[in-house]
Simulated scan of single mutants.
Amino acid sequence: MTLDLRIFVEPQQGATYDDQLAVAQATERLGFSAFFRSDHYLAMGDRDGLPGPTDSWITLAGLARETSTVRLGTLVSSATFRHPGVLAIQVAQVDQMSGGRVELGLGTGWFAAEHAAYGIPFPDKRFGILEEQLAVVTGLWGTPVGEKFSFSGEHYQITDSPALPKPAQSKIPVLVGGGGPRRTPALAARYGDEYNQSFPEISEIGPRIKVIEKALSDAGRDPGSIVQSVALVAAIGKDEAEFTRRAAAIGREPAELREHGIAGTVAEAVDRLKALEADGVQRVYLQVLDLADLDHLDLVAREVRPQLG
């Protein structure tokens, strides 16, 4: 199996819908398997975020109608942003609009400031909310047409839902991420089609995969039944000068990027990706921070990807 490369953007840092559309269409044209975006409402660091945030699922609905083959998803939606019943409807509808190309990444949420900025409750304890959201969303989608779905939990109560609409896919892939030692692996084993490590230390990726594989085995699942993925920043140049320019454009130091991401020259990027594959990684989300630099995607498609697998 060839290492799967996907494109991942952070629109809260400052991007219009049209900016995202251009990247999504380039992602499709260049043969990457998916376009994923973050789900945030506030810029981070010293960015002003102009012209302002775009909602992830509204954006993906638009992209669903303006692309035809590339898969679409979130890395990851915050469980604090939506009621699970509403989320199930939204994602199923976007899946229909795309002809069955949607994937759902769901997490606890972590950025307190964005919640304060838009009046969204941000409870101290959120893992139980995530657990129940996964149960409700997957339960609604999995209920046969004509039957009803009910759920009674600490955070959510669902009574006699018709569990509609249904996604176009028989099962929307669910991505679970996080670094907890016990509860997160168990959650991934119960609900996950994919387990994602977002911006981990490179040395910790292989050991974490082993933890997830054990959780799957303990739950009676084949350890190979879940896709193991990582999200890492990408800054690649055809030579050192181009790499240095790309690092400067996103406000990062070349040495730091080389340590923590898929960065440097084409040869260095290929070496890092092959090492990740040797550690058990099957899919890499390339975090592209300069959405105007479509030549960056072209370089990866032409020079990096052909050297993998």
Rank of each mutant, 00 (worst) to 15 (best):
R190H: 08
R190I: 01
Y191P: 01
Y191W: 12
D193W: 08
E194A: 10
E194C: 10
Y195N: 11
Q197L: 15
Q197I: 14
Q197N: 02
F199M: 15
F199T: 14
P200T: 07
E201Q: 11
E201A: 14
E201T: 02
E201C: 00
E201Y: 05
E201M: 11
I202A: 12
S203P: 00
E204Y: 04
E204A: 15
E204C: 00
E204I: 04
G206E: 15
G206M: 00
G206Q: 14
P207F: 07
R208G: 04
I209R: 04
V211C: 06
V211L: 14
I212K: 04
I212W: 02
E213Y: 00
E213S: 08
E213L: 00
E213A: 13
K214Y: 00
A215I: 11
A215R: 09
A215M: 12
A215F: 12
L216S: 02
L216E: 04
S217K: 09
S217M: 01
S217G: 09
A219K: 08
G220L: 04
G220H: 07
G220P: 13
R221C: 01
P223E: 02
P223V: 02
G224E: 08
G224F: 00
G224I: 02
S225A: 10
I226E: 04
V227T: 14
Q228K: 15
S229Q: 02
A231R: 08
A231I: 09
L232Q: 09
A234D: 01
A234C: 13
A234W: 01
A235Q: 06
I236T: 10
I236A: 08
G237F: 06
K238D: 09
K238Y: 06
D239W: 09
D239M: 06
E240T: 13
E242D: 13
F243E: 03
F243L: 09
T244D: 12
T244K: 09
T244A: 13
T244V: 07
R246Y: 07
R246H: 10
R246C: 11
A247N: 04
A247M: 04
A247H: 04
A247R: 08
A249I: 01
A249F: 05
I250Q: 07
I250Y: 08
I250P: 03
I250L: 07
R252C: 03
R252I: 03
E253K: 15
E253H: 14
E256D: 14
E256W: 12
E256I: 12
L257N: 08
L257W: 10
R258V: 11
R258L: 14
R258H: 08
E259M: 12
E259H: 12
H260R: 15
H260T: 15
H260K: 15
G261I: 06
G261D: 08
G261P: 11
G261H: 09
G261V: 07
I262G: 12
A263L: 10
G264D: 08
T265K: 01
T265G: 14
T265Y: 05
V266Q: 00
V266C: 04
A267I: 03
E268K: 01
A269C: 12
V270N: 06
D271P: 01
D271N: 09
K274E: 14
L276G: 05
L276Q: 02
L276H: 05
L276C: 01
A278C: 04
A278F: 03
A278K: 14
A278Y: 07
G280R: 10
Q282L: 06
R283W: 02
R283P: 05
R283I: 03
R283D: 02
V284H: 00
V284D: 01
Y285R: 06
L286A: 03
